[in-house]
Structures are given as C-alpha cells and as structure tokens.
Measured scan of single mutants.
Amino acid sequence: KDKDLLKGLDQEQANEVIAVLQMHNIEANKIDSGKLGYSITVAEPDFTAAVYWIK
C-alpha cells in the first residue's frame, strides 16, 4: 500500500522530489490532482527513508 509523502506541489517540485528519491532507489509515484497540485506517494516500507531524503 502506498502512503502520501507530499501534497500540493507544482510540477517542478514534484519532479525534483521524484528525482531525489530515485537516486536513493526509492520508487515514488507522482499523481496529478488538478487544481490541488501534484502528490507524491511511496510504498509504506519506503516511507521513513523517503522522509529522510527529502529533508
């Protein structure tokens, strides 16, 4: 199951987060929520590491 990592990002921010996570071998998903911006989700086992790397 995926957990929400970040919400309300613009496309550039979302792409930067995806890139950082991929560099650390964390699979992440970018979801277009329309006017609400983009959300990033990661698998539950990767959540703690993902939070660490996006600081």
Rank of each mutant, 00 (worst) to 15 (best):
G34V: 04
S33K: 15
Q22K: 14
A49C: 15
D10T: 15
Q11E: 15
K30H: 03
F47C: 05
E27N: 14
E16T: 12
K55R: 08
A14E: 03
Y52F: 11
K55C: 15
N15K: 07
L36E: 13
A14T: 03
K7C: 14
L5T: 02
E27D: 11
V17T: 04
Q13A: 11
K1I: 11
Q11F: 14
N15T: 06
I26H: 02
G34Y: 05
I18R: 02
V20N: 05
V51I: 12
K30W: 08
K1R: 11
V20A: 06
L36F: 12
E12W: 12
A50M: 03
A50F: 03
A43I: 05
T41A: 05
P45S: 15
V51S: 09
Q22A: 14
S33A: 13
S39G: 07
N15Q: 08
A19S: 08
V51P: 00
E12K: 12
V17M: 08
V17W: 13
L5I: 07
A28C: 09
A49E: 11
F47G: 01
I54N: 01
P45E: 14
N15P: 01
T48Y: 14
Y38L: 06
P45Y: 14
K55F: 15
D4E: 15
K3A: 08
E44K: 06
G37L: 08
K55Q: 14
K1P: 11
Q13T: 13
L6I: 12
E16K: 13
I54P: 01
E16Q: 13
G34I: 03
G8M: 05
N29A: 08
I40L: 03
T48C: 14
K55G: 14
P45C: 13
M23T: 08
E27K: 15
E44I: 08
P45N: 13
M23G: 07
A28F: 10
H24M: 06
S33Y: 15
G8Q: 04
A49K: 10
Y52A: 08
L36H: 11
D46E: 05
K3W: 09
G34E: 04
A43Y: 07
V42D: 01
H24L: 04
A19G: 07
V17Q: 01
W53F: 07
D10N: 13
V17I: 14
K3R: 12
G34T: 04
S33L: 15
E27C: 11
K30E: 03
A50Q: 00
S39M: 10
I31V: 11
W53P: 03
M23P: 01
A19Q: 06
Y52Q: 08
Q13V: 07
I40D: 00
M23D: 05
I26K: 01
I31C: 06
Q11D: 13
D10W: 04
A50G: 03
S39T: 15
E12H: 12
N29L: 11
M23F: 09
G8L: 04
E16G: 08
P45I: 14
E27V: 14
Q22V: 08
L21W: 02
W53N: 01
I26D: 01
M23K: 10
Q13N: 03
Q11A: 13
A19D: 04
Q11P: 09
E44S: 08
H24W: 05
L21C: 03
E12N: 12
A50E: 02
V42N: 00
T48D: 15
K3C: 12
I54E: 02
Y38K: 00
Y38R: 00
L9C: 09
Q13D: 05
Q13H: 08
S39H: 09
L36Q: 11
L21F: 02
K3H: 06
D32S: 08
G34D: 04
N25I: 04
I26L: 04
K55E: 15
Q22C: 11
E44D: 09
E44N: 05
L9D: 03
N29R: 13
V20L: 15
K30L: 14
S39D: 09
L5E: 03
A14F: 03
K35S: 11
P45T: 14
G34R: 02
G34W: 04
Q13C: 13
D46S: 06
K35R: 10
A50D: 03
A14C: 05
Q11G: 07
L9S: 01
K1S: 09
I40N: 00
E16N: 12
N29Q: 12
E44T: 10
D32H: 10
D4Y: 15
T41Q: 09
Y52G: 07
D32T: 05
N29T: 13
Y52K: 08
Y52D: 07
I31L: 06
N29H: 13
L6P: 02
Y38I: 11
V20S: 04
K55A: 14
D4N: 10
K3P: 05
G34C: 06
V17A: 09
K55S: 14
L21R: 00
L36C: 13
